[in-house]
């Protein structure tokens, strides 16, 4: 076998796969067309566009730089690929007072505004696809969901039911300063010492804003709805 044929073999064996699973899908997915609701099936019209509010780009950077993806995923797999849909609060809410069962799979439109979908490496901690929804509707009912997240990031083992949490504390994302005159407006109600105050750093604010934007349980067009049939909310 001559060198030319050998090199040709290397290029061909690699190149076919490279085109098929890297280049072609990249081109196809960069042109992902918006999905429309169908009047007949969905009962409404318009384009499906999961709305996200918050500091998504900065927050995603903080999420990435501090390696949240090492322990947390952001994917609700369809039932053929895993049991994520069945967990009561991962895929949405099992019994939302207004909307009933909001659980659904993750779709390609859920990552709008981000450059890299943090599917995640491992699940040492729970999935975060709907952490914003969970904090708002389950963990921090009646209080500020942002404050709940700040407290959690500051000390994940603060609540007695979370004493086993393996999450690191992110105290380095907070700033502790002495109080001079009035307390800072963004100081958190932490600690017993009235002469000191703890405020979130800009990174912590971006991260919490990003986490609050993770609410991937909006209704999807029937074309995207592969979940098991849901019982009507009673």
């Amino acid at each position: 076998m001559s060198l030319r044929i050998f090199i040709l073999g290397l290029f061909a064996s690699f190149g076919v796969a490279w085109l098929a699973i890297l280049i072609a899908p990249s081109v196809a997915m960069s042109r992902l067309a918006p999905l429309e609701f169908s009047e007949a099936v969905d009962g409404k019209t318009g384009v499906f566009y999961p709305k996200r509010t918050g500091r998504i780009q900065d927050g995603a950077k903080v999420y990435a730089a501090n390696g949240c993806y090492q322990c947390h995923t952001q994917i609700i797999r369809p039932t053929y690929a895993g049991n994520d849909m069945y967990r009561a609060d991962w895929a949405g809410l099992k019994a939302d007072p207004d909307r009933g069962d909001t659980r659904r799979e993750t779709n390609a439109y859920d990552f709008s505004g981000e450059r890299f979908a943090q599917i995640g490496v491992m699940r040492l901690g729970p999935d975060l696809s709907n952490i914003g929804r969970r904090v708002e509707s389950i963990y921090a009912v009646g209080t500020s969901p942002e404050l709940w997240l700040y407290k959690h990031l500051y000390d994940p083992r603060r609540l007695p039911e979370r004493f086993m949490s393996g999450c690191p504390s992110y105290q380095f994302l907070f700033v502790e300063k002495p109080v001079k005159g009035n307390r800072s407006t963004d100081a958190l109600p932490f600690g017993d010492d009235p002469s000191k105050q703890v405020s979130p750093s800009p990174e912590a604010k971006a991260l919490v804003s990003y986490l609050m934007s993770l609410k991937k349980d909006q209704p999807v067009p029937a074309a995207l709805n592969f979940g098991p049939p849901k019982k009507e909310a009673k």
């Binding site: 890297l22 990249s26 997915m29 960069s30 450059r115 890299f116 979908a117 599917i119």
Partner: peptide, 14 residues
């Protein structure tokens, strides 16, 4: 040449 965030995750896995 970013394509789509999910495809980017696929590229990283590959």
């Amino acid at each position: 040449f970013p394509s789509h965030p999910v495809m980017a995750a696929g590229v990283a896995a590959w």
